[in-house]
């Protein structure tokens, strides 16, 4: 119970701070919308081929927009040595990690929920037709991105080139999860149901989330303290 309270306190603190500065939110949302707009100019949005790559395109946008949020996750603790104050406090490192991951997850999900209708308009797709399966994939894929991004945000927080290092380290590891999310998103976002041939991708994505969440929880103390 104490663990959950600590994690929620950290998440609430991060969200409150972000709502006041809107640093990560503004950058991430603006980036997502601009990329969607540019792609709609670059390709013929109504072409069948473009609809086939819709899932991949969306997840690329989410992955890059996510990096802007995840970079801030632990970097937010640097001014005034707040990370030291947290690590020295009785917060379980796993609770600290989970709280930060939860805050980033909620922020990124909010960006995605704004970007999806914009995507629907630009590309003329009925993305709400498979709303709940789409939300399931969105949640699983966003958690995959968040769980890896948050642990690497902790790992790179003291590096001078952390804005560059985070995506460089995160994206290669994220490939299986991102591929699964892209495969699953492609039919759903154009209003088609998930076929049984895609169930293995769903299992892969869920497994990816579970494995990397467990690994991150186990490693976070070492990452933070050494």
């Amino acid at each position: 119970m104490r663990f959950v309270r600590q994690a929620l306190a950290i998440a609430a603190k991060d969200l409150r701070a972000e709502m006041r500065t809107k640093e990560a939110w503004n950058a991430s949302l603006a980036f997502a919308l601009v990329i969607l707009l540019l792609f709609s100019f670059a390709f013929e949005p109504t072409a069948e081929q473009t609809r086939e790559i819709a899932g991949g395109l969306l997840w690329l946008v989410f992955a890059f927009a996510g990096a802007l949020i995840l970079n801030r996750s632990f970097a937010r603790e640097l001014p005034n040595d707040c990370l030291d104050a947290l690590v020295a406090s009785p917060v379980a490192p796993a609770a600290l990690y989970l709280g930060k991951a939860l805050a980033s997850f909620l922020l990124l999900t909010a960006v995605e929920l704004v970007a999806l209708p914009v995507f629907g308009v630009f590309y003329n797709v009925r993305w709400t037709a498979q709303f709940w399966p789409l939300m399931l994939v969105l949640v699983l894929g966003t958690w995959a991105l968040t769980v890896i991004g948050t642990i690497f945000s902790a790992l790179t927080v003291n590096l001078r080139l952390r804005e560059l290092m985070l995506p460089t380290l995160v994206y290669p590891l994220l490939v299986p999860g991102l591929m699964a999310a892209m495969q699953l998103m492609t039919p759903l976002v154009v209003g088609q149901p998930l076929g049984p041939e895609l169930y293995d991708w769903l299992k892969l994505l869920a497994g990816f989330d579970i494995i990397f969440t467990a690994l991150s929880l186990a490693l976070v103390e070492t990452v933070l303290v050494g």
């Binding site: 701070a17 001014p79 040595d81 104050a85």
Partner: peptide, 19 residues
């Protein structure tokens, strides 16, 4: 339990500017 009984003041104030 040990950390619960320690008070640490480092070079930084350990407080959030946005709060």
């Amino acid at each position: 339990t040990t950390r619960r009984r320690i008070g640490v003041l480092g070079h930084g104030i350990g407080l959030y500017d946005e709060l």
